[in-house]
Design a binder for these strands. Structure first.
Length: 388
DNA sequence: CGCTTGGACCCTCTATTCTT
DNA sequence: AAGAATAGAGGGTCCAAGCG
């Protein structure tokens, strides 16, 4: 809040990149509270991130943030706020738990703190666990009394992938399309690299030639096999926290993938997009990056296309579900870092970590985690190859 | 003949999924 | 939070079949 004479200008700062309906309600409530406390508001705005801004040198705050005045909107909404305040006062006055069934409001716009209470009776493997089904439709089923997967009538029309999920669960049935998997394996050629990137996304661009929330790669793991039965080799890179990791990341990656060979990843759109971004932001690597992109193949495809599906995958084809189903003996359980999200948090933490022992520990954990990701791909491919 | 109905097809928009 | 891919939903168009 900024005072101008006897009046105030109010700014609500959000880390988001657009103004949502929730923010419009927010700002109306802010206006209501502040103005009814006796302060005179001359303007009220939402400040949010401009994700088009590319940093060059010193941060330019006027470009990093969008400021949008919503004074007129907030004034128009005051009657609504005051009605809502009355309504909610009545709810609180009840002094008993409101009797409201679960619905879209449980997670939209935010997850409710009472999920554990209201959803207690929803069994595991319910219609709410059906993959790719819109939430609206899940509640339509729920309202018809169809809750657990067994409740769904046999002749109920559903897309094939959802039918497979339900059918596999009920009958404990694994589906393997050997022919399709064989065709897929023919497209994977040795020598073979297994590749995985880790990235982090600072809301405020830390480096030149980067935008808010841009995914900055800071680590990779590469396994390499000359032929199917030759020994695995491993190389890796983990940037020093502080400066822009991208130049060294790409130099090391290009160097370590110089030898010919397909490059296997899980969900190739992720790695390819990161490589294209590096080419865009550091054009001198473009030619070599494009050569690598052409070699990338995607290990996710057999699972996305449901050529290999087991009930424990629960409709998902992410590596988190596929690995335990195919290679149960290889697990992330013993690792300190178990998923990509915490890897990027850990790396961000290194920027402000002064305890050198802790820095060493975190770096060791990051290297272990990323290496496990590519090793998991090696084992998944091995399992698929057993069908040949 | 004129009307409705239903299927095939296409397009667009939205929601969900994957990765970090 | 991003971006790509894809599934789902809904709308529009077209045409043939069916009906009175």
């Amino acid at each position: 809040m900024v005072k101008h004479g006897s009046k105030w200008k109010v700014y609500e700062v959000k880390s988001s990149t657009s103004i949502s309906e929730t923010y419009l309600n927010d700002i109306s409530v802010q206006y209501y509270v502040i103005s009814n406390s006796g302060l005179h508001i001359s303007d009220i705005s939402i400040v949010y991130i401009n994700n088009e801004y590319v940093r060059h040198g010193k941060l330019e705050l006027d470009q990093l943030f969008n400021i949008e005045s919503l004074l007129e909107f907030a004034i128009e909404k005051q009657e609504w706020v005051s009605e809502e305040v009355e309504r909610l006062k009545n709810v609180v006055a009840l002094k008993e738990i409101p009797n409201v069934d679960i619905g879209m409001q449980c997670t939209d716009p935010y997850q409710c703190a009472f999920i554990g209470y209201c959803w207690n009776d929803i069994p595991e493997n319910s219609v709410f666990d059906i993959s790719r089904m819109h939430r609206r439709k899940k509640f339509e089923l729920y309202e018809q009394g169809i809750v657990s997967l067994e409740d769904i009538p046999e002749d109920y029309e559903l897309p094939a992938s959802q039918k497979l999920q339900i059918d596999s669960y009920i009958n404990g049935k694994t589906t393997i399309n050997e022919q399709a998997i064989k065709e897929f394996l023919k497209t994977i050629n040795y020598p073979l690299y297994y590749m995985d990137f880790e990235t982090f996304q600072p809301a405020i661009p830390l480096f030149d030639n980067s935008k808010p929330y841009q995914q900055i790669p800071f680590q990779f793991s590469l396994h390499y096999q000359k032929s199917k039965d030759s020994t695995l080799q491993h190389s890796e890179f983990l940037a020093e926290a502080g400066q822009d990791p991208r130049p060294e990341f790409i130099e090391r990656l290009l160097k370590d993938t110089k030898e010919p060979g397909d490059m296997l990843v899980y969900n190739k759109s992720f790695e390819i997009t990161r490589l294209k971004e590096i080419a865009r932001d550091f054009p001198k690597y473009t030619k070599e990056i494009n050569e690598r992109i052409l070699r990338i193949k995607d290990l996710m495809i057999p699972f996305q296309r449901k050529w290999y599906y087991t009930p424990e995958m629960q409709g998902s084809y992410s590596i988190k579900y596929v690995l335990p189903a195919l290679v149960p003996e290889l697990s992330y359980d013993k690792l300190e870092i178990k998923e990509g999200g915490s890897a990027s948090m850990s790396f961000e933490g290194l920027f402000s970590e002064t305890d050198l022992f802790k820095v060493q520990e975190t770096r060791k954990n990051l290297l272990e985690y990323c290496k496990m990701d590519t090793l998991a791909m090696v084992e998944i491919l091995n399992t698929l190859q057993m069908f040949i």
